[in-house]
Every structure is written in C-alpha cells, then in structure tokens.
Amino acid sequence: MTAKALAKWTAESLDWRTEMFSVAMIAVLLTMLLALARALLGPTVYDRILAVNSFGTAAILFIAVLGFLSERPEFLDIALVYALINYIGTVAVLKFFKFGDLGHADNAEDTP
C-alpha cells in the first residue's frame, strides 16, 4: 500500500467522531500512566492511595469513552459500578491501613 493509498484509507475509515473519542482516549490513557507512576514513586502511602483514587477516576472516564467509541453506551453501567467501587475501595484501604482491620470491636452494633 502506497502512502497515498494509506492516507486515503485513513481519511475514509476514520470519521471525526472516532477521531474525537480517540483523542479523549489517548489523553485518559496518558493520565492513567502518570497516576500509575505516582503510585509507584510514593513516597508516602497516602500518595499511593491518592494516585490509585485518581487512576480509578481515569478508569471511569476510560470505560465511558470506550463505550462511546464502540457505540455501546451500555458501558456506562459498568462505569457507574466502577465509580461506586472506587470510592468504597479508597475508604476501605484507608481504614484498613489506619486500623489494621475493617471492623472494630467497639464499633460493632447490637452486641448482645
């Protein structure tokens, strides 16, 4: 395939909508990479949890953009579930890190 033919093929197969969501996808992927780098660099455990939280937000965006790119908006349901898990996960990891377990004897409800 010559360069000219390749250019023609790209122009035909990539419409502006695909381009638009591809741009968003690349930006979100780069952001995920940067967040992952911060999670690996640390230096404190809070930096890592913050980075994972941001990574999760980027993952929600990634799923939503992927849904629009493949024209399957049902992906938004998965994005919502990810949003729920992201928040609960952050708080759970934070609590686990702080107290060493996820439940407290003194917090336990209706102890007979």
């Binding site: 638009m20 969501f21 741009v23 968003a24 690349i26 930006a27 979100v28 780069l30 952001t31 995920m32 990479l33 940067l34 967040a35 780098a37 911060r38 660099l41 404190t44 809070y46 930096d47 913050l50 980075a51 941001s54 980027a58 965006l61």
Partner: peptide, 22 residues
C-alpha cells in the same frame, strides 16, 4: 468540550507527578 476535558485530565496527571508534596 472533549479537548478541554482531555487537557484537564493531562493537567491532573502532570500535577500528580510534578507538585512537591502530598
């Protein structure tokens, strides 16, 4: 809007790397 949003995401990622403390 999508270009602004992409730029904001990249800014956030860069900020996570570049800013000095937690």
């Amino acid at each position: 809007l999508i270009l602004i949003g992409s730029f904001a995401c990249l800014t956030a990622g860069l900020g996570l790397i570049r800013l000095p403390d937690f």
